[in-house]
């Protein structure tokens, strides 16, 4: 079966005008998403992951926001859609779940009613039918006793259950794309794994595609097909999961890989961290944006490297001037522990 292209983002730029200056939150992001696939987006805090995701849904629209590029969903550019048409895409075609399930549900309405509201926003079904579907959805996401829990208020749910309810709500109109923005960051580790597995399984049940955003490579390692590494609003490396884990090309990716805790390393060894902090998005450094923090920077890095395929694997793109040989020679000491940190 040929891959069905659902979503394609081309040259996306998002700028916020603020009192301090123009924030270049997203500064050149390209990717494509096919049905049945999971795209992982990773990057440090502030690298523009959430802004990218929210822009796809048109949630960053504002008088002070400027957009460039295209967000093509099934042949339509969502960036051009007027607000009332965009509304019909939100929830129905593209569903989204957010980082903090404790605050993402409205505390004054019953969980079931909030799911019913999502269903009724797009489908002309009566309340009773919508409610039955809400119960069914809650069952599908693994809420025990959904017939009675559907009438609970959010505060009566645990964090993990709330995130499950959020997933149920996001999937209630059977969207083709599910965007999960750090869905497990606020949850404890055992629940994290369950939620990730649930998302992966529901993706198959609902025959959709998933964009999974996280700053933890370990989380996406399991279910992602492709990975997008973001730094300072732009993509620094993009490729299939395996090539990216086994043959990472960008020094920033090495840093991320080095900061995954691993059982095969002695515990006394400190986790590798990336020195320094991300640049100001108002006054970006000249050339490669990672240059000020990069231990391997040289003169050429004052010029911005394009996002290109530099290795043998097609479709594996990166934004670094180092030669492939040089990278392979130096990266393992950056990642630490000898071999690449594949899970």
């Amino acid at each position: 079966m040929a891959d069905e292209r659902l979503l394609e983002v081309r040259g996306l730029k998002v700028q916020f005008a603020t009192e301090d200056g123009v924030v270049h939150a997203v500064d050149g992001v390209d990717f494509a998403l096919d049905r049945g696939k999971v795209l992982g987006i990773v990057g440090e805090s502030g690298s523009g992951k959430s802004v990218t995701a929210m822009t796809i849904l048109g949630l960053t629209r504002d008088v002070n926001t400027r957009f460039e590029g295209e967000v093509i969903y099934k042949d339509r550019n969502l960036l051009d859609l007027p607000e009332n048409e965009m509304q019909q895409y939100r929830g129905a075609e593209i569903g989204m779940i957010f980082q903090d399930p404790m605050t993402s549900l409205n505390p004054v309405y019953r969980v079931g009613d909030q799911i019913v509201e999502a269903i009724q926003a797009h489908e002309p079904v009566d309340k009773r039918k919508a409610r039955r579907r809400a119960v069914e959805l809650l069952r599908q996401v693994g809420i025990p006793n959904p017939e009675s829990r559907v009438d609970d208020y959010p505060h009566q749910f645990s964090g993990g259950m709330r995130q499950r309810a959020m997933i149920a709500m996001a999937l209630s109109c059977n969207p083709d794309v599910l965007i999960a923005d750090e869905p497990t960051t606020a949850l404890d580790v055992t629940i994290q794994a369950q939620i990730i597995e649930l998302i992966d399984q529901l993706k198959d049940d609902f025959n959709s595609a998933v964009i999974l955003i996280t700053h933890d490579l370990g989380v996406v390692a399991e279910i992602a097909d492709d990975l997008l590494v973001m730094y300072a609003g732009r993509v620094v490396e993009h490729g299939g999961k395996r090539p990216l884990f086994y043959d990472p090309q960008h020094p920033y990716t090495w840093g991320l890989l080095g900061s995954i805790p691993r059982l095969d390393r002695p515990r006394s060894e400190r986790l590798h961290t990336i020195e320094g902090s991300p640049p100001s998005l108002i006054r970006l450094p000249q050339g490669c944006k990672f240059r000020p923090r990069c231990p391997h920077a040289f003169e050429k890095c004052l010029e911005e490297p394009p996002l290109e395929n530099r290795v043998e694997t097609p479709g594996h793109l990166d934004r670094c001037w180092l030669t492939v040989e040089a990278k392979r020679a130096v990266r393992d000491e950056t990642i630490e522990g000898g071999e690449p940190a594949a899970a």
């Binding site: 949630l59 019909q88 939100r90 929830g91 959020m166």
Partner: peptide, 15 residues
């Protein structure tokens, strides 16, 4: 600015 308002918008509710 609450998160649940963002959720409501992401559901496709009108302004």
């Amino acid at each position: 600015n609450e998160d649940f308002v963002r959720t409501a918008r992401a559901k496709g509710l009108s302004r």
